[in-house]
Amino acid sequence: MVIFEDVWLRYREPGRTMGPASDVLRAISFEIPDGGFCWLTGPSGAGKTSLLKLIYLAEPPSRGQIEVLGVDAAGLKRRQAAMLRRRIGVVYQDFRLLAHLSVFDNVALPMRLARRAEAHVRADVMEILQWVGLGAKLEAMPAMLSGGEQQRVAIARAVVNRPKLLLADEPTGNLDDEQAERLMRLITALNQLGTTTVVGTHNMNLVARYPAPRLDMAEGRLRLHG
């Protein structure tokens, strides 16, 4: 479950602690139930990425209450925040793969950080890469993959630890229609397995093909919830 109550996010110019600030997010309130699927829509610059960052604890809110997977995000110690992040899978628009690691090692990274036994790591990573159709590219480096393949590696890395919450920020932004369709089938399949899922996109055709509750944003405000 993800709950936002009157959440604001305010930025100052880098390096300044005083002076004028701009509100990136204003008075955001919503609730996503456990196992739910939710679109996060709105034009570029509406605040979708900022809202996702708040959910995966990459930013603290300037004001308001955030609860993620039953945990109040305010006042979390660094170790507790890290442990909560391990329960969240994130797919970034720019993939964020580690260029010097193979496909296998990129996907294995969350499991190794969680100190899973290497035998389990190997089995789970192989399984998830088969699932995303990259079972034959274990040893490939990210630079050798197409954009769609890199996105699938990013998905595999996000879900390999069986997260309770999956966040995807414009996951189809760099993909053609066929790849985008395939990716959405993967994401909805995960959701059907019980993973709470939030997908940020400005592709309304995609939203139309997969009807689900929607958080629609404009200029940092939530203008539609439901």
């Binding site: 995966y56 170790r79 890290a82 992040r85 391990r86 994130v90 580690l98 969350p110 890395r157």
Partner: peptide, 16 residues
């Protein structure tokens, strides 16, 4: 720093 931010986001502890 890019790689550090990624593994931090994946749940790495400061100690890791």
């Amino acid at each position: 720093h890019f790689e550090i931010e990624i593994i931090h986001g994946l749940g790495a502890l400061d100690g890791d």
